[in-house]
């Protein structure tokens, strides 16, 4: 039996294609990209060896510092808000709407399946000031406020960006966390209620600790996505005004393809990868400490 289950030829036939594509198109390019960090130039002009120049340049480039700061600010704020909002919605589904939450869940999940580019264009027009006055400015006007040029400065553009990505993703995290919450045994909640626990106490002492694992996987998932933000920014602000809303991903893209600096682009990509790794490890480590403390 082991001979058949371990048949080398069959394993090769089944695993071969996937492993080949994955190796050639993911693993090897990652290694080549690491190699690029020591070079300057691009595919058309050729490469020349520059040693660690690209890495040193990373630490002195004010644009990188700005893009890094923007990425971190965006990632931390959006991850916090989207997981918190999703958690709130999940609690609403499980404890307030109970069995009847199906339709609401489906409707609030709508934005998740929509293409980011389409949503970004929609939000651009929704917050527009001229030539047409979008609904948001129309509401401001009817309340007696002046219209706001939402894409005219970094602060306002950032607010629209965060609002848009919350709109897009809250429904997803709600469903993800909902799956964790429905697994909490009904008897446990009933027992706590009989002991006289109020809704808030119930949430704090029973629901949150019991849903910790799924909450943590949501955080890891979310931070890995928000650090890599690209579509939303490109389609909503294209990094502007100026380069005020440019994250690392977009800066890497511009450096590589607008300026043809592959070596430096690869260095920025490496920085992004390290960032994702660090944050994932950070979330996992802090979770382990929580578990051992309690």
């Amino acid at each position: 039996m082991d001979r058949v289950l371990g048949d080398k030829k069959t394993i090769l036939m089944l695993l071969g294609p996937a492993l080949l594509v994955y190796t050639l198109v993911m693993l090897v390019p990652v290694l080549i990209s690491l190699g690029y960090t020591f070079f300057e130039g691009n595919a058309i002009t050729g490469f020349s060896f520059v040693g660690l120049d690209n890495i040193t340049r990373l630490f002195h480039d004010p644009d990188v510092r700005h893009a890094l700061w923007f990425t971190l600010k965006y990632a931390v704020i959006l991850t916090t808000l989207q997981v918190a909002l999703g958690y709130g919605m999940a609690i609403l589904y499980v404890f307030a709407l109970k069995r009847g939450s199906g339709v609401v869940r489906t409707l609030l999940f709508f934005p998740v399946v929509l293409p980011t580019v389409a949503v970004a264009l929609l939000f651009q027009k929704f917050f527009e000031i001229a030539p047409q006055t979008g609904p948001v400015n129309a509401i401001l006007n009817s309340l007696g406020f002046a219209s706001v040029d939402w894409f005219g400065d970094a602060g306002h553009a950032f607010v629209v960006l965060i609002l848009m990505d919350l709109w897009r993703s809250a429904g997803f995290y709600a469903v993800l966390l909902y799956a964790g919450l429905v697994d909490i045994p009904e008897e446990m909640l009933e027992a706590a209620r009989l002991e006289g626990a109020g809704t808030l106490q119930l949430i704090r002492h029973i629901v949150v600790p019991l849903s910790m694992p799924v909450l943590l996987s949501s955080l890891v998932f979310s931070i890995n996505g928000t650090l890599k933000v690209f579509d939303s920014v490109v389609a909503l602000t294209n990094g502007g005004p100026g380069s005020e809303t440019t994250p690392l991903t977009l800066y890497m893209f511009q450096t590589s393809f607008s300026y043809g600096e592959y070596g430096y682009g690869a260095s920025i990509a490496l920085m992004l990868t390290v960032l994702c790794l660090l944050f994932t490890i950070f979330v996992f480590r802090s979770s382990r400490r929580d578990v051992t403390e309690s």
């Binding site: 993911m26 990652v30 994702c276």
Partner: peptide, 30 residues
Amino acid sequence: MVWKGRNAVLLTFLLGIMVPGQMILLPLFT
């Protein structure tokens, strides 16, 4: 199927979930 090293291969595939697309764009473009 049962064979040596399958866990290592699975782990290698897992790594790919975290790597940002930017990391493979340039070599692929070339």
